[in-house]
Design a protein around this nucleic acid. Structure first.
Length: 423
RNA sequence: GGAGAAAUGGCAGAGUGGUCGAAUGCACCGGUCUUGAAAACCGGCGAGGGUCACACCUCCGGGGGUUCGAAUCCCUCUUUCUCCGCCA
């Protein structure tokens, strides 16, 4: 969330920037600043009342000690009024803080300078395109038909045992997916990321820490019995490692990677575009997370982009990079680049990665800070990106590598699959 | 799942109702001494709010309560340890 002090200092600039998200911040900011004013003045009055109580209590203690019981009991009577005042002020402070926090949670991050205004994905800017298009036969098949033809993925079986959006991978299909996961993790660790295996469920505090709650409440599966949430991405556990953490400047950057399944309810999204592997309730993803110095975060984001570009290049998949417009930007992000690969058989672009810089937005919620070398404290910047999302890469490989003889395995994956063609 | 014990500053570890934000040791920072380092000695050393700076307020796992006053008493939750049960 945004810092109140920053809102106060940059009010007009922030209002202007948030317009790119089609978000009218002016009335909300007024509310925030007023609540903050109330919060501070209430706190000051409360502090003074408490100071008075503390003083009296000490005096009473001393009186009892010196045997002046009479006087002590008289002094006791004076505290009744103070108690009442304290209680009222405390209640006022609590409701003010609750209201203020709730408001702050509802304000999205400030878009970066380079982000353009826009209302939908139509307004995203293409900033890079690598044309590596395959020469497909006339009768090229979409991946769901290829999956059936070569017995790689069983959607019906998933429907039976769980429901729509929970596919079962089989034989070479399962093996290809495992190969991709291992390959991605190897690429990430070679680039300096530390590999983790993390819990697939998180508590409520973690959901708030990275911003899934309260904004995307309905997108996560909630295990009510134990009040835990299935992770929608490993960003949630990984970034929450740093909740309430104070790092030293020389411990930055922190680079983490993890493979996990991800669970998303995707309520309300049905139809042709969610066919096959295009949109699932459970899917695999390898994620990279960076915690950096504020002055380094955009440089780090560029590094992340070239890292992912390199992977897609090795896989020879045609892809492009989009800089998301204000309207398409995630709630918590200041700047996001999406990677999309081209699915020749479906003739459409599929998002396979999203690389975001959250600046201090998550760090402020997380209380993720670092001590500078000269002893000051500051919020760190957090970033994350997919490297990469499995199903759509699977779809892209199946579709773009299909030949009359079968589906060829990309060269870099052969050491991982142990076979070179699916036929 | 059942029974019991515990949770205090970076770590270790005192503190069972009153001047305790908290002894002591280690670690850390500054100084004296030294050619330099070590040792020794002296001083400093948690976090958040607030202030120009002080003052002041809050925090002893989380939440609630008793009391004029709570690290200390009560309730509750979480976590850890020991024993029993179950188990990949």
């Amino acid at each position: 969330m945004l810092q109140v002090a920053q809102i106060r200092a940059h009010k007009e600039a922030y209002i202007e920037a948030l317009k790119k998200r089609n978000y009218d911040a002016a009335p909300v900011f007024e509310n925030v600043l007023q609540l903050d004013e109330t919060r501070r003045s209430t706190q000051t009055t409360l502090d003074a009342t408490l100071a008075e109580s503390n003083k009296l209590s000490k005096e009473i203690g001393l009186l009892f000690k010196s045997g002046e019981t009479e006087k002590a009991n008289q002094a006791k009577e004076k505290t009744a009024g103070l108690k009442e005042t304290t209680k009222n002020l405390q209640e006022k402070l609590n409701t003010t803080v609750t209201a203020l926090t709730k408001l702050l949670y509802e304000i999205p991050n400030i878009p970066h300078n380079t982000v353009v205004a826009g209302t939908s994905e139509e307004d995203n800017e293409e900033v890079f395109r690598a044309i590596d298009f395959p020469n497909l036969e006339e009768n090229a098949l979409p991946h769901w038909e290829l999956a059936k033809k070569y017995d790689l993925i069983d959607f019906d079986l998933g429907n039976k045992i769980t429901g729509a959006g929970f596919p079962v991978y089989k034989g070479k299909g399962a093996r290809l997916q495992r190969a991709l996961i291992a390959y991605f993790l190897d690429k990430n660790t070679q680039a300096g990321y530390t590999e983790y295996q993390v819990p697939l469920m998180v508590n409520e505090a973690s959901g708030y820490g990275t911003g899934q709650l309260p904004d995307k409440e309905g997108q996560m599966y909630h295990v009510t019995e134990d009040d835990l949430y299935l992770i929608p991405t490993s960003e949630v556990p990984l970034t929450n490692f740093f909740r309430d953490v104070m790092l030293n400047e020389n411990e930055l950057p922190q680079k983490l990677t993890a493979y996990t399944p991800n669970f998303r309810r995707e309520a309300g999204s049905y139809g042709a575009h969610v066919r096959g592997l295009n949109r699932l309730h459970q899917f695999d993803k390898v994620e990279i997370v960076n915690v950096t110095l504020p002055e380094k975060s955009y440089e780090v984001q560029e590094e992340m982009l070239s890292h992912i570009k390199n992977i897609l290049k090795e896989l020879h998949l045609p892809y492009r990079i989009l800089r998301l417009c204000g309207g398409d930007l995630t709630f918590t992000s200041a700047l996001t680049y999406d990677f999309e690969i081209y699915s020749a058989a479906q003739e459409r672009w599929l998002e396979v990665s999203s690389v975001s810089n959250f600046e201090t937005y998550q760090a402020n919620r997380l209380k993720l800070r670092y001590k500078t070398n000269d002893g000051n404290k500051a919020l760190a910047h957090t970033l994350n990106g997919s490297s990469l999302a499995l199903p759509r890469i699977m779809a892209g490989i199946l579709e773009n590598y299909q030949t009359p003889e079968g589906i060829k395995v990309p060269e870099v994956l052969k050491p991982y699959t142990g076979f070179s063609i699916i036929d």
